[in-house]
Design a protein around this nucleic acid. Structure first.
Length: 419
RNA sequence: GUGGGUAUAGCUCAGUUGGUUAGAGCGCCAGAUUGUGAUUCUGGAUGUCGCGGGUUCGAAUCCCGUUACUCACCCCA
């Protein structure tokens, strides 16, 4: 029943069984893939100084200006729940000097943005992300993209597409923006009002507008790539060639832009058809972030876990395909057996067998029913007569067969994986 | 921040033009001769009809507010 007092706050949810199994699968396989590519986990705090985000993401971006959970602590410090993972990772990288200058790290955890929830968008959402610090190098960008593709296939996702583009260097940004404005200005009147505003505040955003009127004007404007320097174009070309050399085929999408200020050179997105309006599973790119007098270069991506799960479900991969290991169930008959079975359960658990038992004197029928429900592969039945004989009835639930064993035989069987 | 849809049992949902004790399926509990599950049969329990107010002789049903869910815009993972 939907009672307000039992519900999490807006845009946040409990992740419980059976849903949690697919989360565990995703995280476990991600850790395997990251380890293979030699990345290590770093767990940064969820709460950071607000200034970290305003400086690295850009103090006029929507994420910073209207989507952060921002608060003051008791000492009056201005803090924010992290809206993304790169800023904190980069702070960590910057904190380590030479030790972390070329860090290869990953993170798994919750992010927070106070927006209106919709399909694929929660206020507390989760990302699995990765950062490879180091000076710009197209080979590094290609390696990270290759890793990401490997990750998607480890998760069993089909039908995802990578859109790749470049946005060049900060020093040429102004020239790009001016070039775009010049091309659009003569037809400014054709644009709807909100687009005209974006013309002033964020021309790049017009490129990926969904509005047909905007698209018509953009179609005739030069692409970002055309406005960039030869060096920046060459950088992108090398990324693409390197990927082709790794037998990874990517397509360049010149309408792709990013909403955060820190990006330079390569940017990309993984999109999937089964998701509704928020169709990006992942955003990635190369960045350059200043913290105090330090500049951190790196390349990375973040995958939205909720969106990833939605995409997997759209392609037939669901949580109930990853249930926990089937358990052994112990059924008791009578007070004396119940007590003895507690000790048996303790012993089995200490030997690594996942097991469960009924702690009341319920009828055996009800106990068998429960064992069946939790998916126990084996039920050990012990009542008064077994107690007298020193034996255990062991039932194989899959086949419906059962045998009566003595303790050494039982332990032997359990040692082989719980029956 | 703006706009649309929704809210009835643990779950999925039905509920006629406002009318008497609000229903179904699944699940749960119990029974179908001895201490054995998943099938079958029989019986049983469970609802502040999201919450608050209003209209009415009478509201799950109409109106207003509110909270949450959901979808889209904006933006983003």
């Amino acid at each position: 029943m939907a009672s307000n007092s039992f519900q999490p706050i807006q845009g946040m949810s409990d992740i419980a069984p059976p849903d949690v199994y697919i989360w565990q699968m995703l995280e476990a396989r991600a850790r395997e893939v990251f380890a293979r590519y030699r990345f290590e986990e770093v767990r940064t705090p969820v709460l950071e100084k607000t200034s970290l985000f305003t400086h690295s993401l850009g103090d006029t971006t929507d994420v910073v200006t209207k989507e952060m959970y921002r608060l003051q602590d008791r000492g009056g410090r201005d803090l924010s729940l992290r809206p993304e993972g790169t800023a904190g990772s980069v702070r960590y990288i910057a904190s380590g000097g030479e030790e972390t200058a070329n860090a290869r790290i990953y993170y798994i955890g919750p992010m927070f943005r106070c927006e209106r929830p919709q399909a694929g968008r929660k206020r507390q959402f989760h990302q699995i992300g990765l950062e490879a610090a180091g000076a710009p190098n197209p080979l590094a960008d290609a390696e990270v993209i290759a890793l990401q593709i490997n990750l998607l296939s480890a998760w069993g996702l089909e039908g995802a597409k990578i859109r790749l583009n470049t946005i060049g260097l900060p020093e040429e940004r102004e020239a790009v923006l001016e070039g775009l404005r010049e091309a659009i200005r003569p037809r400014l009147a054709e644009l709807p009002e909100d687009a005209q505003q974006r013309f002033e505040t964020n021309v790049l955003r017009l490129l990926d507008s969904k509005d047909p009127a905007v698209q018509a004007v953009i179609a005739d404007a030069p692409s970002v790539t055309e406005l960039l320097s030869a060096e920046s174009r060459a950088y992108l070309d090398t990324v693409v060639e390197t990927l082709r050399g790794l037998e990874i085929d990517v397509e360049i999408d010149t309408s792709l832009v990013r909403g955060l200020d820190y990006y330079v050179h390569t940017v990309w997105e993984v999109v999937h058809g089964g998701l509704g309006a928020q169709n990006a599973l992942s955003g990635g790119g190369r960045y350059r972030i200043q913290i105090d007098n330090k500049t951190i270069d790196g390349v990375g991506f973040a995958m939205g876990v909720e969106r990833m799960i939605a995409a997997l479900e759209a392609s037939g991969v669901t949580a109930d395909q990853f249930p926990p290991k089937p358990a052994v169930f112990i059924a008791s008959l009578g007070e004396a057996a119940l007590k003895e079975n507690l000790l048996l359960m303790q012993t089995l658990r200490q030997r690594g067998v996942a097991c469960e038992m009924e702690l009341t004197n319920r009828k055996i029928k009800a106990q068998m029913k429960r064992a069946n429900k939790i998916g126990a592969a084996t039920v050990i039945i012990r009542g008064d007569s077994e107690l007298e004989n020193g034996t255990f009835v062991v039932k194989n639930m899959g086949e419906g067969t059962q045998q009566e064993l003595e303790l050494p035989e039982l332990m032997d069987l359990m040692g082989k994986g719980g029956g």
